[in-house]
Design a protein around this nucleic acid. Structure first.
Lengths: 227, 227
DNA sequence: GACCGGCTTCATGCATGCATCATAAGCTGC
DNA sequence: GCAGCTTATGATGCATGCATGAAGCCGGTC
């Protein structure tokens, strides 16, 4: 979904080495703290160590791995503090995105969002949590894309990679009552965008992201056992 | 100034290759559009092409250069549209920073900012535009650092690199009347921070950044001949 | 005079080899 | 048994060489 600004046709078959290694890390194949040996990755992807090294250095810039000189590259787990910091950023960036989209008020994006919320509501009714999570994900990305600000999009992408979001979202969705509240908030955001109210949209979005982050950061102890 | 979070002692002598090449680009040694030959840089910095390539790939991620596969690495000039986008982001991020700093209300940072504005006012009186520009620069970075949000700091650093700010700030400062307005805005921001008013601080900062960006994007035609 | 096809040039893309150094196992003396 | 030293291992850091492909040049043709 998030490559809509990029070519979407042959994005998979020619996925860059960087993306493939990133997926390995984000997918949890290597647990946090694990070493990512260049030689292994080189063999795995059938290239030499040189391009692997280049990719690892870029992943370090993204904050996903830590390179200890002369020792190795390790999967980095964001600390709780970093997660708090990243959510603060997320709130700000998504607020900006909602504001910009509201100002633009492009009809095509609005209909996509409306449709998304419809599907989302239906997923709630049928109890399809996986579909719901996916649709929520799309909702947010659609708004960021709809802001029509490529630099914002790029920084947001980076931010989300750093959040290693996939490992977090699951917990959030599980929270009792969170789904209902989240749904209301989504509708509120869309409403503000439809009214072409940038300030309202920004406020609604920030409120929503903040609420979500609160839930993500204060997980119900009963749900702590994940996997 | 902007390495205050990093070790500041031997930052120069052991400046990484990445930083050195970045400086070359930001300093304008290579004009936009120019080719950055790996072999040349390797010789210049007395390393082999391999580490140079790694650094160039990272600069590409930062958006400072464009790598055309099999052709070469070229200095990238932000388009006007990108600059607009980046300023929108800047507004958002600095607003967040001011808000966070106001919430924290750390006395040490406040005194630094107060002192900065004093010096700044004095530079205005004595007409020392260079000092003024430097102090404004410090003012903004101090607030971002003072937000005590390292991730925000990192994204901000990245953003500023992308803006290639040094080439822009000069023009902004020159605008007649802008200095007086900017000074008022700075004081307004600090006042809100001192009052520990996060919302006010954010609003004041965003207002200031917006005003500055407007000036930067609509340069006085009489000043267009730079260099 | 303009256009087209092949060639030359040059810079990148990557594989490979060696030097370097962090780490940990093993060894010695107490 | 243990502390300190030595050595063995393994991974990175980087230099180098060759393959690949792009862009421009040059001559020939219409």
């Amino acid at each position: 979904m998030q490559d809509a600004l990029i070519s979407t046709t042959e994005a998979v078959e020619q996925e860059g080495l960087l993306d493939r290694i990133r997926r390995l890390v984000l997918g949890g194949e290597f647990p946090p703290g694990a070493l990512l040996p260049e030689a292994y990755l080189a063999q795995e992807f059938e290239v030499s160590r040189t391009p692997v090294r280049e990719a690892l250095k870029q992943l370090q810039q993204e904050g996903l791995v830590e390179i200890r000189p002369k020792v190795g590259t390790f999967v980095r787990e964001p600390t709780r503090r970093e997660i708090v910091e990243l959510f603060q950023l997320k709130e700000s960036l998504e607020g900006l995105a909602a504001s910009l989209l509201a100002r633009r008020g492009e009809a095509s994006e609005l209909s996509v969002l409306r449709r998304n919320l419809q599907d989302s509501d239906e997923a709630v009714l049928t109890g399809d949590k996986e579909a719901y999570a996916r649709l929520v994900h799309e909702f947010h990305w659609t708004i960021v894309r709809g802001s029509d600000n490529l630099k914002l999009y790029e920084h947001y992408e980076r931010l989300m990679n750093q959040l290693a979001y996939q490992r977090l979202v699951v917990r959030t969705v599980e929270h009792p009552g969170r789904i209902a509240a989240s749904t209301r908030e989504h509708h509120a955001v869309l409403e503000m965008i439809e009214h072409k109210d940038p300030f309202g949209a920004e406020a609604a979005m920030r409120n929503h992201v903040y609420a979500t982050s609160r839930e993500a950061l204060n997980p119900d102890p009963a749900l702590e056992r994940r996997n």
